[in-house]
């Protein structure tokens, strides 16, 4: 695996809206401190789970663990925001929000970004392969975002 790709927000950008940490997701957010993407799995039915839960949504089992994810994905759907959806992205519109399918079998909402500057809907297409990148958060965590692979 290549080095984690860290893409900080522009210098003058406000902080992103901070994701709170639910108890079931503590290992997920802890891993982001070292730019590692982990996904929750049910050991009983060998199914990946996202968002992390206290019980498996297939079998209600509680034998769950976090495993490293491949860090790759495919764009399932996308939309360009012409203006910010909340104050955390003030000054950064237009930007692309996308649903990304991970090979582990789960889907995440995320941003499609680039180290080279803003990304619009014309720069990315549904079906494009992507890989995870990381936007630093003020508390030392990183927010998983995606770049075109």
């Amino acid at each position: 695996m290549s080095e984690p790709l860290v893409i900080p927000a522009p210098d003058d950008a406000p902080d992103r809206q901070q994701p709170p940490i639910s108890p079931a997701a503590e290992p997920f957010w802890d891993a982001t401190r070292s730019c590692s993407l982990v996904i929750q799995w049910c050991r009983s039915c060998e199914r990946a789970i996202h968002f992390p839960r206290e019980a498996c949504p297939s079998c209600l089992g509680t034998d769950l663990e976090f495993r490293p994810a491949a860090g790759t994905g495919t764009v399932y759907a996308l939309s360009e925001m012409p203006s910010p959806g909340n104050a955390g992205m003030k000054g950064r519109a237009p930007y692309v929000v996308a649903l990304v399918d991970l090979p582990e079998g789960v889907r995440m909402l995320s941003s499609i970004v680039s180290a080279d500057g803003p990304v619009g809907a014309a720069d990315v297409a549904i079906g494009d392969p992507v890989r995870v990148a990381w936007e630093p958060l003020p508390d030392g965590r990183h927010l998983p975002v995606f770049v075109r692979a």
Binding site: P20, S22, F51
Partner: peptide, 14 residues
């Protein structure tokens, strides 16, 4: 937190 605050709102979808 609500799942939305944790998993969606950071991405600022309108």
């Amino acid at each position: 937190p609500t799942p939305s605050a944790e998993w969606e709102q950071p991405y600022a979808m309108r």
